[in-house]
């Protein structure tokens, strides 16, 4: 009998030890997720709490299908993502290649490079709002002083320019993530194959194209995966700089969702939008992760 208890104890012990973790996960992740999904199936408005009890099935989702503002924000988010990620990749790669050439002061520069990442995105937003301000902003001021323009450019008022300005802020803040990750890749790369390629007849571009670039691809896709999640949820910079304006021309998914959910109090609809945008993020992650795995396989021979 004594033995029987012992056996039961050993089988129970792992479950008991795991219970706190499961409980936390249940309350912190699973229940809010289930709850928010449920609310996306109701006409829930924050101002009328009883509306949470009305079940309307997929109506919120069906309505999204015809919601032009939502789809505009959806495609704008994808465009924003595509431009920001590619510009950050190119700049980050350039910076990483240049820093990799340094033999002196590399560490200091690496540290300095991280500075933009140390600021809160809200503050970056405020700073760039000031920089691009059409009256007192430093950009207009500089361009006018140099005599390049004679009238103030409405950076944050014109629809296209406003998007451009936001992208500049985003790129300024996050290029260093690419630069750091790619620099790590470059530092880990063996030097010998590069020299072999130079002797084998490659010019600089051919060397880069055939040796460091394939080697860096896994690092590039890791950075892309991280950053696509990051940019897809962009809210703070946009909110601060333009608030989604002018006339909704810089509205991204999350600024729209926040507006619908909190300003208009239509939480059910906002949650439906949030679920769709989550699917977008997942799609991007899966895409880059596949690419990453392919690049890893390609470099499978790396020692």
């Amino acid at each position: 009998m004594f033995r029987a208890i012992r056996t039961r104890q050993t089988t129970l012990a792992p479950l008991v030890l795991l219970l706190p973790a499961f409980t936390v996960m249940l309350f912190v992740v699973a229940m809010p997720l289930a709850f928010s999904f449920y609310t996306s199936l109701t006409p829930y408005r924050l101002t009328r709490p009883e509306s949470i009890e009305i079940y309307i099935g997929a109506r919120n989702y069906i309505r999204l299908w015809d919601n032009a503002a939502f789809w505009a924000a959806f495609w704008r988010t994808i465009l924003f993502l595509a431009i920001a990620l590619n510009v950050e990749l190119l700049l980050g790669l350039g910076i990483a290649l240049l820093i990799n050439k340094l033999t002196w002061g590399q560490r200091t520069l690496r540290t300095i490079m991280m500075f933009p990442m140390m600021f809160s995105p809200i503050l970056v937003g405020f700073q760039f709002k000031f920089i691009f301000n059409d009256n007192i902003g430093i950009v207009n001021n500089a361009l006018q002083s140099l005599g390049l323009i004679d009238r103030a450019i409405p950076w944050l008022v014109d629809a296209q320019l406003a998007m451009f300005s936001i992208i500049v802020a985003e790129v300024w803040m996050s290029t260093s993530i690419f630069a750091i990750l790619l620099l790590a890749g470059l530092l880990a790369m063996p030097r010998d194959p590069i020299e072999a390629a130079r002797v084998d007849g490659c010019n600089s571009w051919q060397v880069f194209r055939h040796i460091p670039l394939p080697f860096l691809m896994p690092f590039i896709f890791i950075a892309m995966t991280i950053r696509s999640l990051d940019v897809a949820r962009a809210y703070d910079i946009v909110h601060v700089m333009t608030g989604g304006g002018p006339a909704g021309r810089t509205e991204l998914l999350w600024t729209l969702i926040a507006r619908v959910g909190y300003n208009n109090a239509r939480m059910g609809e906002a949650n439906a939008m949030a679920y769709v945008s989550t699917l977008l993020s997942i799609a991007f992650t899966v895409f880059f992760f596949r690419k990453l795995m392919a690049a890893r396989r390609y470099m499978g021979g790396a020692e």
Binding site: P190, D192, P193, E195, A196, A197, H210, M299, G301, E303
Partner: peptide, 9 residues
């Protein structure tokens, strides 16, 4: 080269 320096991929 001493370390062969083959192209690993």
């Amino acid at each position: 080269f001493q370390n062969y320096a083959l192209y690993p991929h």
